[in-house]
Structures are given as structure tokens and as C-alpha cells.
């Protein structure tokens, strides 16, 4: 519609040139470069993650005979069904306890500045720097029949004689929450920190007291972080092995200790594979259902 009056370019025979595979499209990397850079990652994930898991699942439906007999066995045998339910219950309790511990910590972190924030953050991150096994050992000392907790409870007069704490489900729940709770704090803190301070003031101007403001404004806005943390802890608890294996009762197995037993004591590969299958399917289903939540930055509290 506008006449180009200034340019005197002849109508060159310009052929549209497609961007070639090995050619960098200006500032972008070439396709070849991207493939080259990502190849080691994909190779490793396919060879050492996807393939082993899939071939394990294949065994669960092929041996000892083709079909779903292994899975039928899990759900029909009350012992195994109980293990499954117990694991789910355990994961739920650990997640709830972690949330109860983590939410106030995250709230206070979001409200704190300077050295106080640094101190709380350091305490929360400290567990990442100490061995899970060492902490498990610490719990087994604390929970011993004559351990610190029994002594304390007796001293305050809650109990008269030492009670059995070690090798119980309670021990597993407490010790696992201790390990997993930081994973809950970070995403909640990340979500809380992203809430603008003005919103609280706006809520106050609108007539909301601190309680109303918390329930009506803060909590809904922190929900993505809470859900992310909850799901992450729940998923981690489902397959957690170390704590149930070392602090749990041999009579009250979880799915992960059951897998270990089937594999190491009974050498029942196909059945162990089926248990892994159930666990993986459960985890995958939850992950997909909450896939929106699994943004990496959110899980890590949106800061490094």
C-alpha cells in the first residue's frame, strides 16, 4: 500500500533459504549443536534410567509366566495388600507431620530479614549437608529404651517405665519427617516470598485482621508451594528405604523394605519387579496428576 520510493534495489532473484541443520540461526544455536549438547544427557537417561526400569517392568509381566499373576498376587494376598496400605498411610502421615512442622517455619522465614533469616535458612539446609545414615543412627540412639527421649518422658512424668520407641512406626514417621521436612519448607517459602507485601496491607485496609488475612490471602496464594512440597514429600516417603529398614519393625514392612526382602532373601525377581511396578505406577500417576506443580524452580523454593 505504501510506495517504496527510496529504495532502488532491483528485483533480485532471491531464493528463500531454509535454515540448515548445521547452521546456527543467528544468535540461536544450530540444531546440530543442541543435539550434540543434549546427547550425553539423553543417552545416560535412556540407558541408565528408562531402559532398566522398563525392562524390570517387562519381567514383572513375563516371568514366571506371561500375564499379570504377580500383580494379582500383590492385591489378593492380604499380607501384601496390607503392606501397600501401610505404606500409603505412612507416607500420608509423614507428609502431614512435615507440613505441620514446615509451614510455620516457612511463614517465619518469609517475615524475617537479615541474620535471623540466614540462621533459620542455615538450620533448614543443614540436613542437606549431613548424612542420612548418620541422622538415622542418631535417631536410633535417641529412641533407645534408655535413650534421651525415654529419659525425658520419664523425667517429666508422662511415663513411668521406658517404652518401646525404636522399631515402631512412630519412630519411622518421626525420623522420616526429620529428613524430608526441609523439602517442604523450601517450596512453601518460595511461594510465600513471592507474595507482595502490599497484598497484606491491602487486605488490612479492606478490613481483614491478621487471621482473616492469613486464611483468605496468604494461604491461597501459598497453595501452589504447599501442594508442591506436600506431593514431593509424599512421593519421597512412598519409596523411602533407609529409615524403614533401619528404624522400622520387621513385622511392619513398607513396600520398599518388602522389595528388598523379596529380592535379597527370596530372590523372587519377578515379584519384586511387580512391586517396583506398583510403586512406579503410583508415583507416575501422582506426578502426572500434579504435573503442573512439578516446576523445578518451585520445588527448590525458587532460589538456589
Amino acid at each position: 500500500m505504501q510506495k517504496i520510493s527510496a529504495s532502488s534495489a532491483p528485483d533480485l532473484a532471491v531464493h528463500p533459504q531454509p535454515v540448515r541443520f548445521f547452521e546456527a540461526s543467528g544468535r540461536k544455536l544450530s540444531q546440530a549443536a543442541i543435539v550434540f549438547l543434549m546427547l550425553p544427557f539423553f543417552a545416560l537417561i535412556f540407558v541408565a534410567f528408562l531402559y532398566p526400569l522398563l525392562s524390570l517392568l517387562l519381567i514383572s509381566v513375563q516371568e514366571p509366566e506371561p500375564g499379570i499373576t504377580n500383580y494379582v498376587r500383590i492385591f489378593e494376598n492380604p499380607i501384601y495388600a496390607t503392606v501397600l496400605l501401610r505404606t500409603l498411610r505412612l507416607a500420608l502421615l509423614v507428609s502431614i507431620l512435615s507440613l505441620m512442622l514446615a509451614l510455620p517455619v516457612a511463614l517465619l522465614m518469609a517475615r524475617s530479614r537479615g541474620p535471623k533469616l540466614a540462621f533459620i535458612t542455615a538450620c533448614i539446609l543443614l540436613p542437606f549437608w549431613s548424612s542420612v545414615l548418620v541422622r538415622t543412627a542418631a535417631w536410633s540412639v535417641l529412641l533407645q529404651r534408655n535413650g534421651l527421649i525415654n529419659q525425658g518422658l520419664q523425667a517429666v512424668g508422662i511415663i513411668d517405665a521406658p517404652v518401646k520407641l525404636l522399631y515402631t512406626q512412630g519412630a519411622v514417621i518421626v525420623a522420616m519427617s526429620h529428613v524430608l521436612m526441609p523439602f517442604m519448607v523450601l517450596p512453601i517459602y518460595g511461594a510465600l516470598r513471592n507474595i507482595p507485601v502490599e497484598l497484606g496491607r491491602a487486605a488490612a485496609i479492606c478490613g481483614a485482621g491478621p487471621n482473616r488475612s492469613f486464611w483468605e490471602v496468604t494461604l491461597p496464594l501459598a497453595m501452589p508451594g504447599i501442594v508442591a512440597g506436600f506431593i514431593l514429600v509424599f512421593l519421597s516417603s512412598l519409596g523411602y528405604f533407609i529409615t524403614p529398614a533401619l528404624l522400622g519393625s520387621p513385622q511392619e514392612m513398607t513396600i520398599s523394605t518388602l522389595i528388598s526382602q523379596q529380592l535379597r532373601e527370596f530372590l523372587d525377581w519377578p515379584f519384586a519387579a511387580a512391586l517396583v511396578g506398583v510403586l512406579s505406577l503410583l508415583v507416575t500417576a501422582i506426578t502426572l496428576a500434579f504435573s503442573r506443580v512439578f516446576r523445578f524452580d518451585r520445588m527448590m523454593g525458587a532460589h538456589e
Binding site: 533480485l12 532471491v14 531464493h15 528463500p16 533459504q17 535454515v19 547452521e23 540461526s25 543467528g26
Partner: peptide
């Protein structure tokens, strides 16, 4: 400008 600099590849032209 970016085409002159080489940060964009034009579809056609010289």
C-alpha cells in the same frame, strides 16, 4: 539490524 549483525538469519535477501 540483527540481520546485518548476523544474529538473525534472513529468510531471503542479501
Amino acid at each position: 539490524l540483527m540481520s546485518i549483525a548476523g544474529f538473525e538469519l534472513p529468510n531471503s535477501g542479501q
